[in-house]
């Protein structure tokens, strides 16, 4: 099983790097979708089946399609030549590397990691999530609908021609 973990991880990191470095927006989207599918695999490994399904539906099914839709709409499907200067790009890579190292050091410093809790394979299922969601987190869940409405209205406002 540990082999599965490493396989998925490799796919994810390679795809993520390709998202950053490939120039064609369409390719970017495709790589990102691949990355997200691998992530759904990770969710299944972690016994979070509900999340895996929702992830596929929401991200790959809706959000990424939205991206593709916008790219097609704006006719951006050819390699875009705009580029940042070499200095910026090198410094971006260096900053990312430093960030990675600092975060690693942080995890090493802050706590000792061990999984000593009794394992329960039921919590990731729909019933487990649902009980928590509609019990403890009912109010935030309902409020998030307001967030969605306001986001919808905002997007429409921006999209209007004479806004």
């Amino acid at each position: 099983m540990i082999f599965l973990f490493y396989l998925l991880s490799t796919i994810m990191i390679v795809c993520a790097l390709l998202v950053v470095f490939s120039k064609n927006p369409i390719n970017n989207v495709i790589y990102l979708i691949l990355c997200f599918i691998a992530m759904a695999g990770h969710y299944i490994l972690l016994n979070a089946q509900f999340l895996a399904v929702v992830h596929i539906i929401v991200y790959t099914g809706a959000i990424m399609v939205l991206f593709l839709f916008v790219i097609m709409l704006l006719n951006l499907n050819k390699a875009i030549i705009i580029r940042k200067s070499t200095v910026t790009r090198v410094s971006a890579v260096i900053t990312g590397g430093i960030f990675f190292l600092v975060l690693l050091a942080a995890t090493r410093q802050t706590f000792e990691i061990h999984a000593k809790y009794p394992f329960n394979s039921e919590i990731g299922l729909v019933s487990g999530i649902g009980k928590t969601l509609f019990g403890e987190f009912l109010l935030p869940f309902e409020i998030s609908s307001i967030l969605f409405i306001s986001a919808m209205v905002g997007a429409m406002m921006f999209g209007k021609k004479d806004a």
Binding site: K84, T88, S91, A92, T95, I98, F99, V102, L103, A105, A106, Q109, T110
Partner: peptide
């Protein structure tokens, strides 16, 4: 905006380093 982003990341970095 790119410069702002750089500045922001640098700030976060310094903050984490400071805490740790």
């Amino acid at each position: 905006i790119s410069f702002y982003l750089f500045a922001m990341v640098a700030g976060i970095l310094l903050f984490i380093i400071f805490i740790l």
